[in-house]
Design a protein around this nucleic acid. Structure first.
Lengths: 217, 217
DNA sequence: TAGTGGTCTAGACCACATA
DNA sequence: ATGTGGTCTAGACCACTAT
């Protein structure tokens, strides 16, 4: 790492192999392997069998966003979390969302709408669809007592998912629930999770205008 | 992992220790260690010496955003990338940014402004500060030929950084350079990178309104 | 104080991609 | 065909921290 950050080894350069580095550092090959695997995970080098290890040409810069349960997110900033369930019904899924989830048109899912508060100020407005075909227990869950967000984290392990972020102007519902004007930009996150090939849940989160997302490089 | 995703081991449960698991799987303890370290890194378990390994209470879900060089980002969507440098000057850094970078007020840095195009349509407007104290070579670089974005990726490895996303309405400069109205929400990313304790660069990227950020869970 | 994970070693065999 | 990283082993000692 020192040789890379101090530009002694430049982008594209071939590094010595593990055996050679072990000799240089006077340690076992396994120790070098462990270190280089960590460095490769962090994106600074590219490793290939037979090809050797190279300093990454365009260090793949990755930002990692931690997504805690919303209650934890609020409470960890020292505020009091509260949650109001506005809507809960079995409904036909809009065509666009059906397409997103690769489901046939006219499928019905559990639709919930709720607002999370931080110190009695709206924090995020959540519009969620839950697939009862995969998760029938959700029909019995009391989402007024435990938020759907938290219930799902505890009860619905997933194998894959996607997360999309965009900037929008609040629609009428967003503005009403977040208590903001319709002329301020807000962050909107759309998240879907899947258990193998089956969609579990699709949620749209509308954040209040002051919210930012902080990530670590 | 199977026992966690199939909810045989629930949130908070104590896992057997490494020696016990090695016996169960009929492998060496080092192999169990390697596997559990990976699982801990992916957020499913929490490990503590003497305390043992527990299934994470609120699985910290992480979304990973890949940040390629902007030219690559444009070209990988099949479009032609082009780049125009509008401004390049040694200037006094505004107080707010000085504070952000933990620099004394009145520090001077290289200030560049440029627009990246995709198929001749504005893609992102970049407003960047570069710390010549850490990176004197940047004073000589021709950012009209190679974008500052790309030059820095090739020439300025960093050790830490932060990445902040927010939704904003374009200011006059954004609107002008991106050729959009000032009443559409846009995504704005602010990114800083550091080499140890020294700030290298601070950039604000204003995206066009249609842009979204896609991440993998 | 004792038990856990963290780390390292010296050696071995294997899978894979490249020359 | 060959050299590289990938993985595993059996053992050892250490650092941390819960009890």
């Amino acid at each position: 790492m020192r040789r890379i950050t101090e530009r002694e080894w430049l982008a594209g350069d071939l590094l010595p192999n593990e055996t050679e580095l072990a000799a240089q550092f006077g340690c076992a090959r396994a120790t070098v392997n462990r270190a280089m695997r960590d460095i490769a995970n962090s994106g600074f080098i590219i490793r290939r069998r037979k090809g050797g290890s190279h300093v990454a040409m365009t260090p793949v810069r990755r930002a990692v966003l931690s997504i805690p349960v919303i209650r934890i997110e609020v409470e960890s900033s020292g505020k009091v979390w509260r949650h109001v369930l506005h809507h809960r019904d079995l409904e036909e899924v809009p065509p666009q969302i059906c397409k997103e989830l690769a489901l046939p048109g006219g499928t019905k899912m559990l639709h919930t709408k709720s607002v999370h508060f931080a110190d009695d100020r709206p924090f995020v407005y959540e519009d969620r669809w839950i697939n009862l075909a995969v998760l029938p227990e959700a029909a019995m869950a009391d989402f007024a007592a435990e938020s759907a967000n938290e219930w799902l984290v505890r009860n619905a392990p997933y194998t894959t998912g996607s997360f999309t972020l965009c900037a929008q102007l609040p629609d009428a519902q967003d503005a009403l629930h977040l208590d903001v004007s319709m002329s301020q930009a807000i962050l909107v996150a759309i998240r879907t999770t899947w258990l193998e090939a089956h969609p579990i849940t699709r949620v749209r989160l509308a954040y209040t205008p002051s919210q930012v997302l902080q990530m670590q490089l």
